[in-house]
């Protein structure tokens, strides 16, 4: 049975909770973790992290977010803010362990045939299945741009790749996803995200 304080926190908006957390209130920040933990963990798994590694990186990301909570001013969503932190934490981890280049150089996995999407409820399953059919670099770029909300330019900087390469990965990744999620519509995709 949740305590009174937890019930009180559950009724607060993210920005209010972040304000409490900025004063050192760790329980308020815990409520933010409850709300956004799954999204962050899911994002990191979609970037290609193994479950245990994704959870470790997600924990580190939330701790980093707590340390920098005063920088969150409510201009965007807290979820988007913490996802960008998590993506950077995971990429730094890969760079520190000298695995980033190897990950980006890996070829596409052999994708299992996936059920076709019948709408977004079924598409949720399809997205994770569809991502498995992308190369690690494509998966990383697509997830960074569409899951973490970073621009192509920011993704290029974070991955230490040329901007054109990132755009190509995104374009190919989206084409593969489209083929798997919505067969029959083979029109080429032009990446429209990012600031070039």
């Amino acid at each position: 049975m949740p305590g009174l304080q937890q019930i009180r926190y559950a009724s607060l908006h993210d920005v209010e909770l972040a304000g409490h957390a900025a004063t050192g209130d760790r329980r308020a920040f815990g409520e933010l973790v409850r709300r956004h933990g799954s999204a962050v963990r899911g994002l990191l798994r979609r970037m290609g992290a193994a479950p245990a590694e994704a959870d470790d990186a997600a924990q580190d990301a939330f701790l980093a977010a707590f340390e920098r909570i005063t920088e969150f001013r409510g201009e965007g969503t807290f979820g988007g803010w913490v996802k960008r932190i998590a993506a950077r934490v995971y990429l730094r981890r890969l760079q520190r362990e000298r695995r980033l280049l190897a990950v980006l150089a890996e070829g596409a996995a052999e994708a299992d045939p996936a059920p076709r999407g019948e709408g977004d409820a079924a598409g949720l399953i399809d997205l994770d299945e569809g991502l498995k059919g992308l190369s690690p670099a494509e998966r990383m770029c697509v997830t960074l741009c569409y899951g973490a909300g970073v621009s192509h330019g920011e993704a290029a900087e974070a991955l230490n790749l040329p901007l054109g390469t990132v755009k190509s990965h995104v374009k190919r990744g989206l084409e593969k996803l489209r083929a798997r999620l919505a067969p029959g519509d083979g029109a080429a995709l032009e990446g429209r995200r990012g600031n070039g």
Partner: peptide, 17 residues
């Protein structure tokens, strides 16, 4: 259609597992 598909992808990513 490309924009619609991108929106759909964004929605799918926004749905936390």
């Amino acid at each position: 259609a490309e924009v619609d598909f991108e929106r759909r992808i964004e929605r799918l990513f926004a749905d936390a597992p």
